[in-house]
Amino acid sequence: MHRMLVICVTVILVLVTIASGKISTRCYACRSRGEQGDCKDPFTNNATSIKELAGNPISVTSCPSGWCRKQMEGVRGPGDDYGAATERACLPLSPPDGEERCAEVNIRNKITLLCVCRGDLCNSAQSLQSYHYFIAVGLAMSILTYARNIIPV
């Protein structure tokens, strides 16, 4: 029983690592100001559509840190230049605590919403690509149920 559980956990960890892009992380890179540009939300691009559009100002870049960011200026309403700019890029260093999050920060005297995430192309419109984790949990439950049925306790 113990050996089968170790094998199942190992397989799950490998699949989660591959699915969430920990092996080869890329980030979207772009910047839009105001209503102009394609970097703002809703962000409808994907890695394939970006390659197909010649001269597209949005790119997909390799990210050695494994962490991407999405930064939105003017998050406090019209008095703060609402929607002034949206930028997506690689985060050069991982956060010290290793936590994915969104927080209001002061950058260049502007209140900015900064979201950091870990995983392949995670800085798209979704703040975190949580569906990878739902798939992993479902897979884990299936494997453990199967293992419980074939190995007597």
Rank of each mutant, 00 (worst) to 15 (best):
residue 117 C to F: 01
residue 73 E to A: 15
residue 109 N to L: 08
residue 115 C to I: 08
residue 45 N to D: 10
residue 53 L to S: 03
residue 39 C to N: 08
residue 132 H to F: 10
residue 24 S to L: 06
residue 81 D to G: 14
residue 105 V to W: 11
residue 128 L to A: 10
residue 103 A to Q: 15
residue 54 A to Q: 10
residue 81 D to E: 12
residue 123 N to C: 09
residue 12 I to N: 08
residue 87 E to G: 03
residue 38 D to M: 02
residue 59 S to Y: 03
residue 95 P to E: 11
residue 134 F to R: 07
residue 5 L to Y: 04
residue 53 L to C: 02
residue 123 N to P: 02
residue 23 I to Y: 02
residue 44 T to F: 04
residue 151 I to T: 11
residue 9 V to S: 13
residue 57 P to S: 05
residue 22 K to I: 02
residue 73 E to N: 11
residue 91 L to Q: 12
residue 88 R to W: 06
residue 149 N to H: 06
residue 134 F to T: 08
residue 8 C to F: 03
residue 118 R to K: 15
residue 151 I to Y: 04
residue 103 A to D: 15
residue 64 P to M: 11
residue 128 L to D: 02
residue 57 P to E: 10
residue 107 I to S: 10
residue 119 G to Y: 00
residue 9 V to C: 12
residue 2 H to V: 13
residue 146 Y to A: 14
residue 72 M to T: 15
residue 127 S to D: 11
residue 59 S to N: 06
residue 114 L to M: 14
residue 77 G to S: 13
residue 113 L to Y: 05
residue 114 L to R: 14
residue 102 C to P: 02
residue 102 C to W: 01
residue 41 D to L: 14
residue 81 D to F: 12
residue 17 T to D: 05
residue 87 E to A: 10
residue 109 N to D: 15
residue 73 E to D: 15
residue 42 P to V: 13
residue 106 N to Y: 07
residue 28 Y to N: 05
residue 98 G to D: 12
residue 13 L to N: 06
residue 93 L to F: 11
residue 153 V to F: 03
residue 9 V to D: 01
residue 133 Y to C: 05
residue 56 N to P: 00
residue 74 G to E: 10
residue 131 Y to W: 13
residue 83 G to R: 14
residue 73 E to H: 14
residue 36 Q to A: 14
residue 40 K to S: 03
residue 42 P to R: 09
residue 152 P to Q: 09
residue 133 Y to V: 05
residue 52 E to T: 02
residue 39 C to L: 05
residue 119 G to K: 03
residue 81 D to H: 13
residue 48 T to C: 00
residue 21 G to S: 01
residue 153 V to W: 02
residue 143 I to H: 00
residue 127 S to V: 07
residue 112 T to L: 08
residue 26 R to T: 06
residue 125 A to W: 12
residue 130 S to H: 01
residue 131 Y to D: 12
residue 24 S to A: 08
residue 57 P to T: 09
residue 85 A to K: 11
residue 48 T to H: 08
residue 114 L to H: 07
residue 151 I to G: 00
residue 52 E to M: 09
residue 153 V to I: 01
residue 104 E to C: 06
residue 113 L to Q: 15
residue 138 G to M: 06
residue 82 Y to W: 14
residue 14 V to Q: 07
residue 102 C to N: 07
residue 153 V to T: 06
residue 90 C to Y: 09
residue 60 V to I: 12
residue 96 P to I: 10
residue 28 Y to R: 04
residue 80 D to V: 10
residue 65 S to R: 07
